[in-house]
Amino acid sequence: MSEPIVRIEGLTKRFGEVPAVAGVDLEIARGELFALLGGSGCGKTTLLRMIAGFETPDTGRVIIDGQDMTGVPPHKRPVNMMFQSYALFPHLDVAGNIAYGLKREGVARAEIAQRVAEVLSLVKLDGLGSRRPAQLSGGQRQRVALARALVKRPKLLLLDEPLAALDRKLREGTRFEMVRLQERLGLTFVIVTHDQEEAMSMATRLAVMNAGRIAQTGPPHELYERPASRFVADFIGIANILQTGARRWLALRPEKIVLTSARPATAHVATGQVIDIAYEGDRSLYRVAIENGPVMLVAAMNVARAHGSAHRRGDTVWLGWSDDAGQVLDE
């Protein structure tokens, strides 16, 4: 395996008494679209800022492309960042914003013009070079920020909540556009996000962070299907977590359970009463109170068009699942 583009070793950072990042080891491979996923305050942004060089780690090393970058100021790192606020220069027009980094490098004027035009076309902003950021829509601003980081052809592009400021519709379209761009340019992206849907749908690999540590790293399906801990199981998607022994749990996804009126012929069964139904169109989510047991969530596709959900509140129902339907956890 080739040298990873980013290797992080034992990284910690405290703000006063509060540890923001508490011992992180991580490797990110070339060409990956890697997502750092976590709730607010989990340390994901601090980790990203340490990769960019805006924060100095208390201990540990950041190695980028084989070179130890710990303590190297941001302007000397082969890394560019797209800020959550976009941080566009309000006194410069779009072309000026994009050309800023090239001018600092001392690129010749003609080449700057050419590269700016190229990247503008890449992000579909042709002809808007002379606008000021204040004259652009939110989506256009987002693409200017992206273009400004891309034009430098960085080895690594860091994106801090790149879609958070966009409205829902625009966000979904932009997701795929960014993935296509990343694949086309063959760059490495590291995205920080709190939105698991975004992380799952875009990333080739992701890391879930909790309280300054990485809870689990892996491809999206692995994190969903094989969570390593109750935290990850609970954080990603929905899971029924059943205690099956001392320090042993079973994480069971609602869609892995069959819901029937008669007793099913699966390895595991339980019966209970429907106490709530959330109709979601394509499927319904049932809350079932198990006799002498916990409340479980079960999802069922609404195959028939006749009426909404297949079961009604108060119905007595059977739940069944196979041996390998859930993930056994010991932490």
Partner: peptide
């Protein structure tokens, strides 16, 4: 002044003095 603009300048390769002069 939005200080993240200075971080952006630094991120784009501006040393402290040019960042001050241009932003």
């Amino acid at each position: 002044l939005d200080w993240s603009l200075l971080e952006a300048a630094s991120d784009l390769g501006a040393k402290p003095l040019p960042a001050f002069l241009t932003v």
